[in-house]
Each structure stands twice: as C-alpha cells, then as structure tokens.
Amino acid sequence: MNRKRPVNLDLTQFHFPLPAITSILHRVSGVILFVAIAFLLYGLDASLADEASFNALIETMDGFFVTLIVWGILAALLYHLVAGVKHLFMDAGIGETLEGGQKGAKIVIAVSVVLILIAGVWVW
C-alpha cells in the first residue's frame, strides 16, 4: 500500500456548499412548520369561535413573545415556500447544473430574507 498518499483531514477546510445549507434549512423549516400547525389551528379555532375570542386573540398577538413566535412561523413558512418553488423549477429542468444550483441557492436566500424582513415589519 502506498503510504505516501495525500491525506487531508483538516476539518476546518471542509464546509457545506450553499445548496446543502439551503437544503437542510428546507428540512428544518418543514419540521418547524409541522409543529407550528398546532399553533395555527389553535389560532384559527380561537379567531372563529366568537367575537370576544377573536379580540382576545388579537390582543394576545400584540405581546412581544407571541409576536416573535408568529414571526418565526412566518419565517419558516416563507422560507419553505421559496425553497419549495425552487425545487419545482429544478424538477422542470431549470438550474440543474453546478452553477445553476449555486445560483438557485443564492436566489432562495435573497428572496426569503427580503420576504422574512417584510413579514417582520408587518407583524410589529
């Protein structure tokens, strides 16, 4: 066995490429949304029960902590949506090359950051 094979185990040199990061975020946001559905259904239930319950919900959503949760859910939703739309484009054969994948990941990050910021301004 050739003992002079080049060995590179400098872990600081390894890093995930951007498309891998957007992919794992798509999964993470999906799992977050699965949990968030409980809050959304609770909110829908409370908002439709009666007027007092609707107003109480609006008041609850004014609280800082609740607003933060709502923003978090919206962020996960918007990111998952944008990354999902990118998936559909790639299914159609658009952006399947190495450069295309990197460009697509950059677009996903850029578009979702803008939408999440708009959502943040909206909820506050």
Partner: peptide, 16 residues
Amino acid sequence: QRVSAVVLAVYTLWLV
C-alpha cells in the same frame, strides 16, 4: 409531494 406542495403554495399565498 409536488401536487400537495402546489395546493399548499396557492392556499398560503391566498390566505396570507
């Protein structure tokens, strides 16, 4: 997964 994704995307965009 894709068909349900389209339904969810349209519903989400409509409601939000």
